[in-house]
Write a protein that binds this DNA or RNA. Structure first.
Lengths: 212, 212
DNA sequence: ATGTGATTGAACTTATCAGTTCAGTTGGGC
DNA sequence: GCCCAACTGAACTGATAAGTTCAATCACAT
């Protein structure tokens, strides 16, 4: 009775191919400019097959966005998780987290997700809950949680962990947006390393164990 | 022979009304979903009149974006200019700049400009030069320039002013994006004050006169 | 008053695209 | 070897909107 589609035994699951293709096409053209025909072609499938799996362009968009958001969030959380085992020196651990977060952020799919969210926020307000509420804000919370624990252990000096986490993100995102010109320019690996190091430098000056 | 339209003496200039209306409608609906009919209605004008002033929807969009970008940039630059007369204590000066930049950033038109830029970047790559190149990046440069002078005067300790400026922006934009949930939520004045103060706190810890 | 150029509303052309229909094909499970 | 469900291609409907046309109107300058 649940609307769950029976596993398509025998044939490969085209649903995933369709959602992947949909995200690529939406990322390339935006929601309104993308046409289902092209998504079908990109997935190597006929148009009625698309409608067989997902019953409207809107659904197609929502599901593609949700999938992309879930994968981006998982990667971000994995990066933050590095702080579970900080080691004896905090700086390299923070730098590694920073570096991994930058990798997430400059990722092509992730940028596209961000662009599409901004673009369609007015038309699909509920995307905010899916992409932001279950994505970005969870990552910030996880980071704040890690920072709070480090503060409790006396290894950082943080009055407001949530704000510290937001600032940590800002120290990464601001400069990388600038260097990549909103993601339209490839940023060399070495520059990302520098960005991460500089962000951690500033962060530790403010929140390091010897901070004001 | 120059395509310059003679000043419409006697009648009010409808061109400006059309561009204003266009920006409002584009901001509300996005480029693809906005229709020229509606822009005309919003400007209190007939559709052929729109085409009499601006010969295509594309032009309409470009000019509306350019105008919005110019006004946003001017306001940002004015905020940064506050650092020309820093006074004897740097902290309140920086806080005032931070606070004004936050005001620019949470401004409705400014957010819309940003959203539209992100949204249509693929379709209108040249907007990057207009909005980013002559907007955001100029503001960052101006800020970097001010910071560099303060460093020369021994009032800050900054090795790379460009990066310091990017980080200053990041310390503001990151938290405010978070607090406003991408601009979908009104941030109370007092919270903006706190955000500005916290950003300056962190900034001065890293780049204050007594910094590492 | 009158001429001129901008403005208006309404209808029209053309193009694109979401979503559907259908007759025919395919390919794995039995 | 046959069945059945998924898949295919192609054609179709209906809606929406860009851009144009045109005859009628308006408001200022002289």
């Amino acid at each position: 009775m649940s609307g769950v589609r029976a596993a398509p035994r025998g044939r490969i699951d085209k649903r995933q191919a369709i959602l992947d293709a949909a995200f690529r096409v939406f990322a390339r053209q935006g929601y309104a400019n993308a046409c289902v025909q092209e998504i079908a072609a990109e997935a190597g499938v006929a148009k009625p097959t698309v409608y067989n799996h997902l019953d409207s362009k809107e659904r197609l968009f929502r599901e593609a966005m949700a999938a992309a958001a879930a994968s981006a969030t998982a990667r971000n959380l994995a990066a933050v998780d590095r702080l579970r085992a900080p080691g004896d020196d905090l700086r390299p651990a923070l730098q590694e987290v920073a570096r991994r977060l930058l990798d997430c952020y400059v990722d092509e799919r992730s940028r596209a997700l961000w662009r599409l969210l901004n673009a369609e926020l007015a038309a699909f307000p509920d995307l905010l809950d899916v992409v932001w509420g279950e994505g970005t804000s969870r990552v910030t919370e996880a980071l704040a949680d890690r920072l709070a624990r480090l503060a409790l252990a006396g290894r950082l000096t943080i009055a407001d962990p949530a704000r510290a986490a937001e600032q940590f993100s800002g120290l990464l995102m601001g400069p990388v947006d600038s260097r990549s010109r909103l993601g339209t320019r490839q940023v060399p690996e070495v520059e990302l390393d520098e960005l991460a190091a500089a962000a951690v430098e500033t962060f530790l000056a403010a929140f390091g164990p010897a901070a004001a």
